[in-house]
Design a protein around this nucleic acid. Structure first.
Lengths: 237, 237
DNA sequence: GAGTGGTCTAGACCACTAG
DNA sequence: TAGTGGTCTAGACCACTCC
């Protein structure tokens, strides 16, 4: 763990334990640098990551401030567009289960080759499953993943693919390109989500990248309407 | 314009004019620093912003690479979830027009008070308009904005509210909290988007913040399905 | 004008990849 | 082992806010 990560964690602890009121101004960067025995550049890296997480914001000429709505409303049932979509991690403490519709391998379509930047002879897994949180239908997922990334078993698919990739296969998810659509329920949605024909469905089309910039999954997630939405917190520079 | 921004633009130019093949490795950072007459730290900032934009990726120990799917990725008609939703700026060079359904002021509902963190006696504007890009229906917007933020005229609403806020009223948009839903077309959508009853509609619910962390608008944007989606590029740390 | 965050320099050392 | 990107230092100057 790098120094700036340690400092960022340390600061977050201070915010949650009440050392700072929401909206309060932090000590200036020079002071923080002295306090943590480092330089301003390193403090700035730590603060930068807190900005991205939506914990603090800075105002040139004024200071660094703890967000007023820092502690408040986190949505409990919505995937966060600025985080991995994996349900297991985002809904820790809840019962996440899966029904597996398909786990297979085949050669990729041209569309899939394109999205994953692989050749026509590189086999991919096809994974289709419905996910439930606390027994309630949460999402229907259709995932394509090159087999060279990791070996996927039925057991992994039944629990958490992302967790397996991170902890067992050493894959670090670094980013994703996502597109969100509203569509009419397909036959798969009627089966996978219990949707009614003609119902709106929220569809998230995503290509996930590893920290090496390599696409490792192309997935389409369907969320039932009325009971679900996606959330994005945005920092504009 | 800062040096790292100039360098980042300069590099992007080189990528589009074919000096580098997709997937090609860039000169190492030391070399780029010499070439641009600067230090590695500044080159790194330039590269960092290219990473966020999804143009290049780095591999420690190996080099910096131009994404293979660099050219293919641009969507021309989708709002970017990591940017302001304002059409005028995102679609510069295209003809953005508006039809105004309503421009009025009244006292806020409790829901609106809540979202904007204002009192019941602080008046708000109510703005409803349909937006067109190159004559094509793009979105239907319903915006609530405290009148204390700025004076809004019909002329402003007809062109660009965001641009007016930024350039005339000195408001800097620093971030937003957004929620994206799939819903069934409402009566407003049938009027405002020309949607058919029962059609899916993509709805973006957003509270925008100024650089002081103050909510300045609560808006709901409806996008017609089939012709539109939203895009999010995510960097996960 | 004093104080803040943002950029930039010129180095050093560390972590990682590949031949 | 050579070469790459990632972190970190110890400063300097600039842009901006607020009194």
């Amino acid at each position: 763990m790098y120094k700036y990560q340690v400092i960022s964690e340390e600061l977050k602890k201070k915010f949650t334990d009440g050392s700072f009121q929401p909206g309060a101004v932090l000590p200036d960067q020079e002071q923080l640098a002295a306090e943590f025995g480092t330089t301003r550049m390193t403090i700035r890296k730590a603060i930068q990551s807190l900005i991205v997480e939506g914990v603090v914001y800075t105002k040139r000429g004024s200071g660094t401030f703890l967000r007023k709505d820092f502690a408040s409303k986190r949505d409990s049932f919505a995937p966060l567009l600025n985080k991995p979509l994996g349900a297991t991690k985002n809904y820790a403490g809840r019962e996440v289960t899966s029904k597996i519709w398909e786990l297979d391998a085949r050669l990729p379509t041209t569309e899939e080759q394109d999205r994953l930047v692989i050749g026509p002879e590189e086999p991919v897994y096809v994974i289709r499953r419905t996910r439930y949180i606390d027994g309630k239908t949460y999402a229907y997922e259709h995932t394509i993943m090159p087999t060279k990334i990791a070996t996927i078993t039925r057991k992994v698919v039944a629990s958490s693919i992302y967790q397996y990739l991170a902890e067992e296969a050493g894959i670090r998810i670094a980013g994703a390109h996502r597109k969100v659509y509203a569509i009419k329920a397909t036959a798969e949605d009627i089966e996978g989500l219990g949707a009614t024909i003609g119902d709106p469905v929220l569809m998230i089309d995503q290509v996930g990248y590893t920290d090496e910039g390599e696409p490792f999954e192309y997935s389409v997630t369907h969320l039932p309407y009325l009971t679900n939405a996606v959330v994005a917190d945005v920092e504009i520079r």
